[in-house]
Amino acid sequence: MAKAALAIISALCILAAMAGSGSCHPGESFTVKGKVYCDPCRLKFETRISENIADAVVRLECRNMTTEEVTYTKETTTNADGTYMMTVEGEHEEEICDVTVEKSPREDCKEAAAGLEKAQVVCSDKVGMHSNVRYANPLFFMKEKVSKECAKVLKELDFVPLEM
C-alpha cells in the first residue's frame, strides 16, 4: 500500500512539474523583462545612487541571423520603477533579438552609452530554457556631467576609474 501511494505521489509531482514548467512552444509568446536607469557617475554600471527612469522608451528588434533583415519589432515604456515588460509573439529561433534604449524622458540623463545601449535576449524555446520569461540586462542613460556624490560612491567601492 505504501509503495502504491509513493508511486502515485511521484507521478503527480512529475506531472505538476511538467505542467508548471512554463515552456513556450511555437505559436506561443515570450515575456521580456528589464529595467532602465540613469548612471549619474558615467561609470557604465549601476551604483547605489543610480536612479531608475520612468517612461523611458525601449524597443525589441529581432533580425534574421543570415540576412539581418528585421523580422519583428515592438516598443514599450518603463513604469514608475524603471522596469518594463513586453510580450513577444512567436518563435524566433533563427533570429537575434536585442532590446535597445530609444529615448529618455529626462533632460538631465539622456545620453546612451555607445556600444552598451543594447541587451540581447533569446526568444526561442529550443535553447534549453524552461520558462517563457526572458530577462534582459539592465540598460541605462548617462548624465552629461558627473554628480558630486560620485566621488564618495567610488571611494566606498574602492574603485579608481581610468578616466573621469
Rank of each mutant, 00 (worst) to 15 (best):
A4E: 07
A5P: 01
L6N: 12
A7M: 13
A7R: 09
I9N: 01
C13K: 12
I14L: 15
L15G: 12
M18W: 09
M18C: 11
A19L: 13
G20Q: 11
G22F: 12
G22V: 09
G22C: 10
S23F: 12
C24N: 08
C24W: 01
P26E: 13
E28P: 05
E28L: 11
S29T: 06
S29I: 05
F30D: 10
F30R: 02
T31W: 04
V32Y: 01
K33M: 05
K33W: 00
C41P: 04
C41H: 03
R42Y: 05
R42T: 06
R42E: 10
K44T: 08
K44F: 10
F45C: 04
T47I: 09
I49W: 09
E51D: 03
N52W: 05
I53S: 01
D55E: 13
V57G: 02
V58T: 02
R59H: 15
R59K: 15
R59M: 15
R59T: 15
R59F: 12
L60N: 04
E61T: 15
C62Q: 10
N64A: 04
N64E: 09
T71D: 05
Y72A: 02
E75M: 08
T76A: 14
T77W: 07
T77H: 08
T78W: 09
T78V: 09
D81K: 15
G82R: 07
G82Y: 05
M86F: 10
T87K: 13
T87R: 10
V88M: 07
E89N: 08
E89P: 01
G90D: 03
H92T: 03
E94L: 09
E95S: 11
I96F: 02
C97P: 04
C97Y: 13
D98H: 13
V99C: 02
V99D: 00
T100V: 08
E102C: 11
K103S: 06
K103A: 09
K103M: 11
S104N: 03
R106C: 00
E107Q: 07
D108E: 13
D108I: 06
C109P: 00
K110L: 00
E111C: 02
A112G: 12
A112I: 07
A112M: 08
A113M: 04
A113P: 05
G115C: 03
G115P: 00
L116N: 04
L116Q: 07
E117Q: 11
E117R: 13
K118A: 06
K118I: 10
K118P: 00
A119E: 02
Q120Y: 03
V121M: 06
V122F: 13
S124F: 04
D125H: 04
K126N: 04
G128A: 04
M129F: 11
H130V: 14
H130A: 12
H130Q: 13
N132T: 04
V133I: 13
V133D: 06
V133W: 06
V133K: 15
R134E: 05
R134S: 07
F140D: 00
F140I: 02
M142Q: 15
M142S: 13
M142R: 15
E144S: 07
V146R: 14
K148P: 06
K148T: 14
E149N: 06
A151Q: 14
K152M: 13
K152A: 12
V153R: 07
L154F: 14
F159R: 15
P161A: 14
L162G: 14
M164I: 08
